[in-house]
Design a binder for these strands. Structure first.
Length: 571
RNA sequence: CGGGGUGUGGCGCAGCCUGGUAGCGCAUCGGCUUUGGGAGCCGAGGGUCGGAGGUUCAAAUCCUCUCACCCCGACCA
């Protein structure tokens, strides 16, 4: 490919709109351009990378026995009404009417459509299992699109759905997808971690996310240094407290004046106690009514755990007026003693012998509160976020808290959609049964950004070979030199004939400009040819990642490059 | 949606506070010279200062409204 024929507008300066590294470099390297918030054009270079990811994912899905389909992006409201999600999906679902006034939406995901297809076409256990996937543009009207391709509104996704006669078979498929995903992300050259994830309201006993490790990631995860336990922070368990969980009660609770002392830090400092002895009382509104959650002052609530324990989908911290109404006191003085609300305590609270709580009275706190003697608890559970100070819940080893970008998510759907949409089959006994389903997603365009978050330096992108838009960049030092020109074009043709992807910079630019652009684009191998190298019958090959250069004789340059590429692609 | 910020040639910015003929760097076009890490000189083109309304003799600058975008929080591939 000749540079002069490509639409490849590189930028010297960082666009003001881009903050994230991948966003900046995608723009600067001329791979994407923004059309609207969270909506991007892919230019030729960006599309080449996107296609590479897509093909790796496709190959691994096919290898795992899945079949590719293509479902419509525009979907009728009826299906969503049938599944019940037309009401619950929220504003991320882009809705509109067609010319006849029929409610429609742009598909953010395809459970409804695929289940509809399968219920029409599959009637017998003999047709099962079935694993279908597609690679398609999705639209989710995100609250806040950001970081370029990492969270766009329109994005390319691989979504797959499997159908089974029973739960055991769906779990077999889950395992196959787990392995296929791992292979795909490995081939993409990503440093990733598989973590246990919250399976959410859909239910199911387990779910996994595939996280590309990057400090700029939007997700946090806990990972054990000693064993293979790793979980999304919102899922990560806290090991039950060790030692004596029920210390003997001491003196009776006593109210003390704490004027204008509200936060945990202020209370701890005022009463000269450790923040861990100050218990905070969080008042939440849920669709099932208000509740109170107790946590040690030095701990952070995990709202996902609270939601799951309560079985609610709505969990919002109560506002000042509502707190006043429920506790009789201002924010900062709520406490569990005598509070007429369902009371849920984090397990760590139970290990305290004497704690400080709000007194439900402005300007007062209670001291010497004993959890078992003084509180009427609805339930005690693990309700907080783990920290790097907590031991691993599996092996007791040290936990690390890392940041990651979610590029894949697999979970079991069970019979949620098959029941809602009445997707059934006849089993061997002639009985009508609901299908068991699994669901598997990969953020294809997000992988492009994640690979850059993981592979870059001050000069630009460093692509893994498998994703690079071109494998080799070819730079002539002086195209005005006839010998150089002739040798460069001949080499370009030879490389292409050998099946290598090569970009020849035939622009009338000075070498420095080309070097900068190639570092920015991040092609793995760069070949420089000029009068000086030609005089020795050689070319200079530079590895983008290591920055090492070697002189290679022109007569075996093609085989040298082929070797380098196959070495990196196949280990 | 709440909080913070930015809109001035294609890109990055100054000018705004204190109203008075719209500027700089890069990019673009033409010419000459250059050619191993974002070249030099000469010349040229390109902007209703996000939009609307208002104040004023006069608005990029002051006021009101509005739109777009970015960053921090609640959603997810």
């Amino acid at each position: 490919m000749l540079y002069s024929r490509l639409l490849l507008p590189t930028l010297k300066e960082n666009p003001a709109e881009a903050e994230a590294v991948s966003h900046r470099l995608l723009l600067r390297a001329g791979m994407i351009r923004k059309l609207a918030s969270g909506i991007y054009n892919y230019l030729p270079l960006g599309l080449r990378v996107l296609r590479k990811v897509e093909n790796i994912v496709r190959e691994e899905m096919n290898r795992a026995g899945a079949q590719e389909v293509l479902l419509p992006a525009v979907q009728p409201a009826e299906l969503w009404q049938e599944s019940g999600r037309w009401q619950v999906y929220g504003k991320e679902l882009l809705r509109f009417k067609d010319r006849h006034g029929r409610d429609s939406c742009f598909g953010p995901t395809h459970e409804e459509v695929i289940t509809d297809l399968v219920r029409r076409e599959v009637h017998s256990y003999r047709q099962l299992p079935l694993n279908l996937y597609q690679i398609q543009v999705k639209f989710r009207d995100e609250i806040r699109p950001r970081f370029g391709l990492i969270r766009g509104r329109e994005f390319l996704m691989k979504d797959g759905y499997s159908f089974h006669v029973d739960e055991a078979d769906s779990e077999t498929c889950y395992g196959e997808m787990y392995r296929a995903y791992s292979r795909a992300f490995q081939r993409c050259g990503l440093n990733f971690k598989v973590v246990e994830a919250d399976s959410g309201p859909i239910g199911g006993s387990f779910s996994h996310e595939f996280m590309v490790l990057a400090d700029t990631g939007e997700d946090s995860l806990a990972s054990c240094a000693a064993c293979d336990y790793a979980a999304n922070l919102e899922k990560a368990e806290v090991a039950p407290p060790q030692g004596n969980p029920a210390p003997a009660p001491g003196a009776a609770p006593e109210a003390v004046a704490t004027p204008e002392v509200r936060t945990v830090e202020e209370v701890a400092a005022f009463l000269k106690v450790s923040p861990r002895e100050v218990v905070k009382t969080l008042i939440y509104e849920t669709e099932a009514g208000p509740v109170a959650v107790l946590l040690r002052g030095d701990h952070e609530v995990n709202e996902v755990k609270v939601k799951n324990l309560l079985g609610v989908t709505e969990l919002i911290l109560a506002g000042p007026a509502r707190i006043q109404e429920l506790t009789g006191a201002e924010v900062g003085f709520a406490g569990p003693v005598g509070l007429n609300l369902p009371l849920y305590a984090d397990q760590a609270v139970m290990a305290l012998a004497a704690m400080v709580t709000g007194a439900n009275r402005d300007g007062y706190h209670l001291i010497q509160v004993h959890p078992q003697r003084d509180l009427v608890l609805t339930q005690v559970a693990d309700l907080r976020l783990v920290t790097a100070q907590d031991p691993c819940p599996r092996c007791g080893g040290a936990l690390e808290i890392l940041r990651g970008i979610e590029v894949g998510h697999i979970f079991k759907l069970g019979r949620k959609y098959s029941q809602a949409l009445k997707a059934t089959f006849l089993d061997a006994a002639g009985q009508e049964q609901y299908l068991y389903m699994g669901c598997y997603g990969i953020g294809v365009s997000r992988i492009v950004a994640a690979a850059i978050e993981q592979g870059h330096d001050a000069d630009g992108i460093i692509w893994p070979l498998a994703l690079a838009p071109f494998q080799v960049g070819l730079i002539p030092i002086a195209l005005t030199d006839a010998a150089t020109r002739e040798a460069t074009f001949r080499l370009h043709d030879e490389l292409e004939a050998a099946g290598l992807e090569v970009l020849l910079d035939d622009r009338d630019e000075r070498p420095g400009v080309k070097f900068k652009d190639y570092d920015l684009m991040g092609l793995p191998l760069r070949v420089v040819i000029g009068p000086k190298t030609l005089a020795k019958g050689q070319a200079e090959v530079r590895h983008r990642r290591s920055r090492e250069t070697v002189m290679v004789g022109l007569d075996h340059l093609v085989s040298y490059l082929k070797d380098q590429i196959s070495k990196e692609l196949h280990g």
